[in-house]
Design a protein around this nucleic acid. Structure first.
Lengths: 206, 206
DNA sequence: TAGATTGTTAATCGATTAACAATC
DNA sequence: TAGATTGTTAATCGATTAACAATC
């Protein structure tokens, strides 16, 4: 798989499928068709079938997809079948919220270190983790085999933090700061910036 | 303007342009070309020119775009030139983080009410606002002319909250809960769900 | 078997990019 | 004037959707 370059649009839909499939599983539902999925997720059924077909033949003609099996397969595709260590930079309000988010364990993404620049905060604990100084990023990333960094610092500091993370050997960044990060190096940067969402939402009002 | 239906992709880029233009303004820069913008934002200059040209002729040939003027124009397009009242549902960690975010005032989007279902929290204050019960949503939305609702409640409750907001006459929703909301009514729903971002990021690791 | 639904090809639709005349 | 850069058309590229043979 991944012989052809799969488009970003496809990859962004997989987690949405995954989430709904887990929901179906929790409800005890065993199989689902692309039509049912499409109806619930407001996505064209043909697109769902095509997205999945990039990675293999996961369904059965006349029947649909087995929920449990498809969950496993999508997790494999997204590499969520292995534990991925994550660090969080920024222990402000947002950092607090993120570190308490209970989604990580079940998704195999685990926050194993929290950093902050404020000397007042260093040494205090959040979610069982002692806050470390930003200077400790390089060694901690190596020691704990951290592969993903979440940036939750103020906008003016985000670029510098990103560069420190890249330098430390991180493979992916999720950026919450409301600023477009220049990509130094070959890491993947995703944005979770709600201000742009809020601004584009304003356009559609009324 | 908006005679032709402008694509969503265009509208989603406008806030990114806006943010960088404000940054340039803060640095005292007066004019900027599509090439410079494109280089900094990693967007094709032709695309930037085309995006802006949907709404008018904002640039000057041979010169580029006047920063201040373009900021004004984009704010007009996004309807950020008027104050938009926003409410927040969910006063947990994330709600706390959002209510303290300082981006609202300068963007004319202002949180004017906070709701929660937990009786323990009702009556306490966040960011100067008294937390109200969810039952107070309909009257408060009308009274305070609230147009946008931010959902920051646990996933299982998000759909019901969305329906209450729609029923109350809200025009747009920004959903932070990790669940795909069914759109009852004709409101616009944007997602600020970082779990899907984190999951798709995993695919690109290494 | 008949009905349902996949995987996949072909058609359509839409978005991005290149190119360039107009013009500051 | 010469150089730079826009606004816009045409070309390209890519993504979505329709349709249907294969088959459970």
């Amino acid at each position: 798989m991944k012989t052809v370059n799969i488009s970003e649009a496809v990859i962004r839909r997989l987690p949405i499928y995954l989430r709904f499939l887990v929901h179906l599983q929790n409800m005890g539902i065993k199989t689902v068709s692309s039509q049912e999925l499409g109806q619930k997720l407001d996505i064209n059924p043909a697109q769902i079938r095509k997205d999945l077909a990039y990675f293999g033949e996961f369904g059965r003609k006349g029947i649909g997809y087995e929920v449990q099996y498809l969950i496993e397969k999508i997790k494999q595709i997204l590499k969520l079948d292995q534990i991925i260590n994550v660090c969080l930079v920024g222990a402000g309000h947002l950092g607090h919220a993120l570190s308490n988010y209970n989604v990580y364990q079940k998704d195999n993404m685990k926050i194993v270190a929290i950093f902050d620049a404020d000397p007042q905060k260093i040494g205090t604990k959040i979610a069982g983790l002692t806050i470390l100084p930003v200077e400790a990023i390089p060694e901690t990333v190596k020691e704990k085999k951290i592969r993903v960094g979440i940036i939750a610092v103020p906008a003016p500091e985000a670029q510098k933090v990103a560069e420190i993370l890249v330098e430390a050997g991180i493979e992916g960044i999720l950026n919450f700061a409301p600023v477009s990060l220049r990509n130094t190096g070959k890491v993947r940067i995703h944005h979770a910036d709600f201000t742009t969402e809020l601004h584009s939402l304003a356009y559609y009002l009324e």
